[in-house]
Structure formats: structure tokens, C-alpha cells
């Protein structure tokens, strides 16, 4: 897969590469919004602190509204989970299921990357797509979100009555975890686990965006990453780039190099 070459104002050559389709970017932000809504409304449902119904009981629906928005957002999250899981097997997303799964190879690379990120020593690998550490983080998030969906169905089923579809789906979870209190505890606790991973995920993206030129943040908005050629020449394998075989790109790169030499 080739990329589009360009030149920074400083004269350095850069390469613009597609990292994910726009639909994946869209799903990411739907997920982001749903998690924000789920966290705020979920925290309220667990511990109603900051918003109270005013007037008589029939005039206010504070908790009912929070629960409704929580339900809407959970549908959005479930939709993203399913559709992104499907996309992870497609060519457009570079079959990135391989990067999400904690395979031994991914774990080894993730540990190397984690050591580099923490110590800032050695050489950090640049990845065109999702790096192994990020992949494992996303895998954890997916597991946590799946747990929230399953426990959420169980909590929702409790009020639907025996025999309903939700009951059929949720009741076995209730039995497995020995009661609704345990389901509720896990649902509440996993929210913190999710916040833990999301906090690190957001920080790492901002950090990489600040330190490197890869522009991770714009890659999740428009689906492109920008790499200076000087950085990625010896990492081409990681990007799946065929720089030497890509005639137009090579030609453009040579032109830029020649132009720079002339300038100098």
C-alpha cells in the first residue's frame, strides 16, 4: 500500500498514508460519545448525587431520564462493538483483528513498546496501523465493554419479568454471578477499569501526537497519518510500505530530494 508524498515547510519529505476508513473513525467517535453518556448517566444511576427531581414525584423524571439515556447510549455502544468487530476482519481496516488479539507476538512487541514509552530509552517502533500496545489496550477495552453489555442486559432483564427475551438473555448471567448484587458490583467496578484504560489511551495518543509527527489524533478524525520519511525509512516494514516498488512515490521522493539538494 502506497502513500501520498508531500513536503513540510522545513523542506522535509513526508508521507501521508491511510490508516483506517472513515467509517472506522465515525464509529470511534460514536463510541466516545456513548461512553461519555454511559459514564455520566451510569454514575448517576449508581449514586444519584448531582441532579434531583423537583416538585411532586409525578412532575419529575430525573432518574427515569438518566436511565433512558443510559439505555440509548448502551445501544449505541453495542452497535459500535458489533460493527467494529466486523470491520476488524475487512481489508479496509487492514484485518486489524490481528493487532487487537493478545497473541504471544503482540504481547512481546507490546512489552517492548511499553518499556520504551516508560523509560524513553532505546528506539521506539513506529506503526502505521495500531501498535501492539494500543492493540492490547483496545482488546482490554473491548472485553470491558462486552462485560458491561452483558451485565447491563442482566440488570435490565431483572425488571422485565420471567419469560421475556431480555429475561432469557440476562437470567443466566444473574445465575452465573450468584445474584443481581454481584452483577451490579461488576458493572460498577468495570466502569472504573474502562476509565483506567481510556485515561491511558487518551494520554498516549496526546503524547504521541506531541512527541512524534505521526499525528495519531488526526488519524482518528480523518483516517490518515503523516510520517516524515527520515523517520520511517528503516521502519518501512512496520508500515507495510513498498517505497522502492512504488514508482510515482519514488519519483516524487527523488524530485523532492533533488530540489532540496539544489536549494542547499
Amino acid at each position: 500500500m502506497s502513500g501520498r508524498l508531500g513536503v513540510f515547510e522545513s523542506g522535509e519529505t513526508y508521507l501521508v498514508v491511510r490508516t483506517r476508513p472513515l467509517v472506522a473513525c465515525f464509529l470511534h467517535w460514536v463510541l466516545f460519545l456513548s461512553i461519555v453518556v454511559l459514564t455520566i448517566t451510569g454514575y448517576y444511576i449508581g449514586d444519584p448525587e448531582f441532579y434531583y427531581g423537583q416538585g411532586e414525584a409525578y412532575q419529575a423524571f430525573a432518574m427515569a431520564e438518566m436511565r433512558l439515556y443510559h439505555l440509548y447510549a448502551s445501544w449505541a455502544m453495542a452497535f459500535v462493538l458489533v460493527s467494529r468487530f466486523y470491520l476488524a476482519f475487512t481489508e479496509s481496516c487492514n484485518h486489524d483483528i490481528k493487532q487487537f488479539l493478545p497473541t504471544p507476538k503482540n504481547i512481546v512487541n507490546a512489552v517492548k513498546l511499553a518499556i520504551y514509552f516508560v523509560t524513553l530509552r532505546g528506539e521506539g517502533a513506529h506503526y502505521r496501523f495500531i501498535n501492539p500496545l494500543g492493540g492490547i489496550g483496545i482488546f482490554m477495552m473491548a472485553v470491558f465493554m462486552l462485560t458491561q453489555t452483558i451485565t447491563g442486559i442482566s440488570l435490565y432483564s431483572a425488571g422485565t419479568g420471567a419469560g421475556s427475551l431480555w429475561w432469557v438473555l440476562g437470567s443466566p448471567i444473574d445465575s452465573l454471578l450468584e445474584g443481581q448484587q454481584n452483577v451490579r458490583l461488576i458493572h460498577h467496578l468495570v466502569m472504573y477499569f474502562l476509565m483506567f484504560v481510556i485515561l491511558i489511551h487518551v494520554y498516549m495518543q496526546v503524547w504521541k501526537n506531541s512527541v512524534f509527527t505521526e499525528s495519531d489524533i488526526s488519524s482518528i478524525i480523518a483516517g490518515y497519518k503523516i510520517f516524515p520519511l527520515s523517520q520511517i525509512g528503516h521502519f518501512a516494514d512496520y508500515y507495510g510500505l513498498r517505497l522502492t516498488e512504488d514508482a510515482p512515490a519514488k519519483k516524487r521522493m527523488d524530485e523532492v530530494s533533488t530540489a532540496r539538494e539544489k536549494d542547499e
Binding site: P48, Y51, Y52, G53, E56, A57, Y58, Q59, A60, F61, A62, M63, A64, M66, G159
Partner: peptide
């Protein structure tokens, strides 16, 4: 779901 105080739960009155 059968509680006499349920309306106050939905209203957010605790």
C-alpha cells in the same frame, strides 16, 4: 417494581 415509593425513584427523589 411494585414498591409504593417507586415514583420517587423515577423522579430522582431520594
Amino acid at each position: 417494581d411494585q414498591c409504593q415509593r417507586r415514583a420517587h425513584f423515577d423522579a430522582g427523589q431520594f
